[in-house]
Nucleic acid binder design. Structure first.
Length: 620
RNA sequence: GCAUGCGUAGCUCAGCUGGAUAGAGCAUCGGUCUUCGAAACCGAGGGUCGUUGGUUCGAAUCCAACCGCGUGCGCCA
């Protein structure tokens, strides 16, 4: 899933400076032939091996037919001065590892350089742009847990790139066109319900009924005839089929009027969208997700681009008739991609082709990310290949855009089956969020009841706001902190337990720091940073990893890497705080230095959480 | 059947573009609150990294086969 990640040198990035130093050393020691040798700089596997380690010696020695430790020594002897300035003397260990320990003053200098509003994150990618397909709701349907994932994973990926300075196009690929919508629309119009008062629940019901009606009978009738049941049953089914056919004819008629722009139908259709989207935006707001009307690029947006798209495939001889339908075939697989039905109408693949083309050629995106359910893997593989075949990934400057599907797994219930309510219904996202908020509020209130708690005495409204932040953080962090490709079991108890690797744990570390800074009445401002204790060093090194963590998470399209960074930082902070007094029993210089460390940690935590759109309350 | 993804501690999962003794959290057991926020910290036990081969100086990581589970597979989206 990895792809281009233009990295820009950062002044505070010690790892890159070490790597550059070792590259120089390799060439100085072994000659130009070593210019392509990767110094292989890694974070040390174990603190006793230093802060970083260089692993180039074993492989290099093998090709040279020399002793790895001698090779390592030879390279280390040629280390340039700028490298020696930031490192303690190198040690050769084991089979030929080079252990690298940074000098405390170099760490302090790097931290000082990082203490800037950017927090060391380069936003020098302004010429790059990415389109992110997220959310993907269907008109007239309630959002469910699947949409939670498509929405927050997409939003986080979008924010990662925004943080790096990319131009980001959020694309909400609404299901707002075609027969399914027409069926719902037709049903609503037939029922003569006041379309101005209709709720999403009503629409949801109408949608489901229309869907079931459309499916049932055809399949049922065919099956009945095939299995030769009695004539009564056939007649019954035929009657049903008649009703369904009438509904279907009505739907087709409605679709035709919608497509031809019949004002009354179009107006009602727009109302369905309004009713649906009102709730979507509300949910997005609760989740902190940046999703607005301007991000809507639904199926209807592409309706006039479908025929031309199909036509181009035909012209290019990439689409062929098969059983009346048009299919695109691929050299390496049996499965074709169907782009036009035998009745001449388009289907979802057609829209995806048009959308991909729009994102690359109209928006100019060099990267298009699709945050869609893992079950669509094959579908996107086919669509992407078709788009490449016809050359729509070629951008204005002749470079090639990348299309990447970020497949996410299912949200499961305790029984390891897709999440359902007690009564077997699909869980609506709204219900899920309501429960999470209620749990968050309960936890916050029970702690505020303790007399000397920092939240003690806060107003009910304040506690509610904090509780909501905690509840939402709990489910968002749980979702984003594991590999998105995997299924996970939705267990609210675990998510809100606040122990271990959870959103509230990160929020707690942040609130703790806020408490310290408030008590101190200062933040260390420009005081010199001194790195002494082991825990200070560990905290500092983690802070310095922040820019790299963002770049890595973005390049890998893996929000869980950002989560891992957050957890690690909260963890090292708590350990630091445990053993390094900040406010008491230390001299002024240490106090100021540590306050500055605290403040930097607070800002990095808040910034990292903001990329997941998780709020970090000052008290909780 | 074909394709595709996944099998790591009792449970939930990191680590997977090859590097030193495989890491967390939960649970279990044991320590830290008269002093900066204990939603915290420190420590202990717990592993044939599905199996078998292969590549390599070195494999949880790469390759192959097999076993188990999930998902997908032309006129739904």
């Amino acid at each position: 899933m990895s792809h281009n990640a233009a990295r820009t040198p950062r002044t505070n990035d010690l790892a890159h400076r070490i790597e550059a130093g070792f590259r120089d050393a390799l060439i100085a020691a072994m000659g130009d032939s070593a210019s392509s040798t990767d110094p292989s700089i890694k974070v040390a596997a174990n603190p006793k091996f230093g802060d970083f380690q260089a692993n180039f010696a074993m492989g290099l020695a093998k090709t040279l037919g020399k002793n790895p430790r001698e090779v390592a020594q030879q390279v280390v002897d040629h280390a340039p001065q700028f490298l020696r300035d930031i490192c303690e003397p190198f040690e050769i260990a084991g089979p030929g590892f080079v252990n690298i320990r940074l000098r405390p003053d170099a760490i302090a200098a790097a931290l000082t350089a990082m203490d800037h509003p950017s927090l060391g994150v380069s936003d020098a990618h302004r010429t790059h742009s990415v389109a992110v397909d997220l959310c993907g709701v269907n008109v007239a349907k309630q959002m469910h847990v699947g949409h939670l994932r498509a929405t927050i994973i997409g939003d986080t990926i979008a924010r990662l790139y925004e943080r790096l300075g990319w131009k980001v196009f959020r694309q909400n690929h609404l299901g707002d066109w075609g027969l399914p919508i027409a069926m719902t629309l037709a049903a609503v119009r037939r029922a003569k319900t006041d379309i101005n008062r209709v709720t999403l629940d009503d629409l949801n019901t109408a949608y489901r009924n229309a869907q079931m009606q459309g499916r049932d009978d055809e399949a049922g009738l065919t099956a009945a005839r095939a299995t030769g049941v009695g004539p009564h049953r056939i007649a019954e089914l035929e009657a049903q089929h008649e009703g369904a056919s009438a509904a279907l004819r009505d739907a087709h008629d409605t679709l035709r009027r919608l497509q031809s722009g019949d004002p009354a139908v179009v107006a009602d259709w727009q109302k369905l969208i309004d009713v649906t989207m009102r709730e979507v935006y509300e949910t997005a707001h609760v989740l902190g997700v940046d999703l607005k009307p301007e991000h809507n690029r639904g199926e209807s947006f592409f309706r006039d681009r479908l025929s031309p798209a199909v036509e181009e495939f035909v012209q290019a001889n990439l689409a062929v008739r098969d059983d009346g339908a048009l299919v695109v075939r691929f050299a390496d697989r049996e499965r074709p991609l169907l782009i036009q039905k035998s009745d001449g109408t388009s289907l979802y693949a057609t829209t995806d082709l048009a959308a991909a083309r729009y994102r690359v050629q109209d928006l100019g995106a060099e990267l298009v990310v699709y945050c869609v359910d893992a079950r669509q893997r094959d579908h996107f593989r086919d669509v992407f290949d078709a788009v490449r075949l016809i050359g729509w990934t070629t951008r204005a400057d002749n470079s090639q855009a990348s299309l990447v599907h970020v497949p996410f797994g299912a949200v499961l219930g305790a029984d390891k089956r897709p999440l359902k309510t007690r009564s077997g219904e699909n869980f609506t996202l709204k219900a899920l969020l309501d429960e999470a908020v209620a749990r968050g509020r309960h936890e916050v209130r029970s702690r505020a009841a303790v007399p000397d708690a920092p939240t003690s005495g806060m107003s009910s409204a304040e506690l509610d706001a904090i509780g909501e932040a905690v509840g939402i953080a709990a489910i968002k962090y749980a979702d984003l902190s594991s590999d998105v490709g995997r299924d996970y079991v939705f267990d609210l108890d675990r998510m809100v337990s606040f122990e271990g690797d959870t959103g509230p744990y990160a929020q707690y570390a942040h609130a703790r720091i806020c408490g310290i800074l408030a008590k101190a009445g200062e933040n260390g401002a420009t005081s010199p940073i001194v790195i002494g204790a082991l825990e200070e060093r560990a905290l500092a090194l983690n802070l310095l990893r922040y820019p790299g963590a963002i770049e890595d998470a973005a390049a890998q399209l893996a929000p869980n890497r950002l989560a891992a960074f957050i957890y690690e930082l909260a963890n090292t902070f708590n350990a630091f705080y445990q053993s390094c007094p900040v406010l008491r029993g230390v001299d002024d210089a240490t106090r100021h230095s540590r306050l500055r460390l605290c403040d930097l940690t607070r800002r990095v935590l808040a910034d990292a959480l903001s990329i997941m759109a998780i709020t970090a309350p000052a008290r909780m």
